[in-house]
Design a protein around this nucleic acid. Structure first.
Length: 259
DNA sequence: AAGATTACCTGAAGGC
DNA sequence: TGCCTTCAGGTAATCT
């Protein structure tokens, strides 16, 4: 728990993690930690907020005894507790993600930036809005699911799993997905995200919870990462689809027919 | 202007 | 043994 603790010091070990001009609110008290889309946000008593983008391998966790772990980029010292930011692949960022040229220190600016950047959270978007946001586009359904401006919070694993459960091929143009399948997709997505949260997420290689424990959802995955394995529904070998820039989608060619 | 593509990043894993 | 290549995928920038 960080809420109620005063930030007393900051140590930066990796310069590119955030802009040098980032003014950490040393002396202010942490009011709480929240999530917006896939970002972690710390709110402080001086009206500022710190926005953390974890990228692929970023972790915010409590500092344990002994030397700092490798790839520790930041140490936030609170009264009675130290929190570290660890990120081997360094895709994560502090402040506004990206080029780290701007710091959104004021809470209102952080929230406004998020409002511009993210669509409704996939966990609580109403069906009508889901349908409106996905049903009109010519773009591939999979690409749209991953677009945080359309829906916030969905990554590659859960997109593939939801498409499998709904029986939709990842390359289907979104506007061509039949309404009943779109509804299935909506329900599958919410169910999967909810189940995964209950199982503390999905650990393939790197992911751990803030307590350092691996997530337990990996064994419930039906297609993701299972190229060549039998589809749990029909037995057909699961296929991998390659997108540009090395992205993959896993799907069952029989349960998820193209067009 | 929407949609498509690419750069960023490094440890793990596999081929030879 | 060790060097080389490939892969992972969230995000923003760049291209068409």
């Amino acid at each position: 728990m960080l809420a109620g603790r005063r930030l007393v010091g900051v140590k930066r070990l990796f310069a590119e993690i955030c802009d040098r001009r980032v003014a950490f609110p040393v002396g202010a008290t942490c009011l709480g930690v929240r999530r917006r889309a896939k970002k972690v946000i710390l709110d402080f008593s001086d009206g500022s907020s710190l926005l953390i983008s974890l990228g692929m391998t970023g972790q915010v966790r409590e500092r344990e005894r002994g030397p700092l772990p490798p790839h520790t980029h930041l140490v936030l010292s609170f009264e009675g507790r130290e929190v570290i930011y660890v990120d081997p692949r360094r895709l994560g960022r502090l402040a506004a993600s990206g080029a780290a040229t701007t710091m959104w220190a004021a809470r209102g600016d952080v929230n406004a930036w998020c409002d511009r950047q993210f669509g409704p959270d996939a966990l609580d978007v109403p069906w009508e809005e889901f349908r409106r946001r996905l049903g009109a586009s010519r773009g591939c359904i999979k690409t749209l699911l991953l677009n945080q401006k359309v829906l916030a919070g969905i990554g590659n694993i859960y997109a593939d799993e939801a498409l499998f459960r709904a029986g939709v091929h990842p390359r289907t143009p979104a506007r061509d997905v039949p309404l009943e399948k779109l509804k299935k997709l909506y329900q599958a997505l919410r169910g999967i995200l909810r189940q995964s949260i209950n199982a503390s997420g999905t650990t393939l290689r790197d992911y751990v919870t803030s307590a350092g424990a691996p997530g337990d959802f990996a064994r419930r995955l039906k297609v993701y990462g299972r190229e060549g394995a039998a589809c749990p529904r029909c037995g057909t070998p699961v296929r991998r689809l390659r997108w540009p820039a090395g992205r993959s989608s896993f799907y069952c060619p029989r349960c998820q027919r193209e067009r």
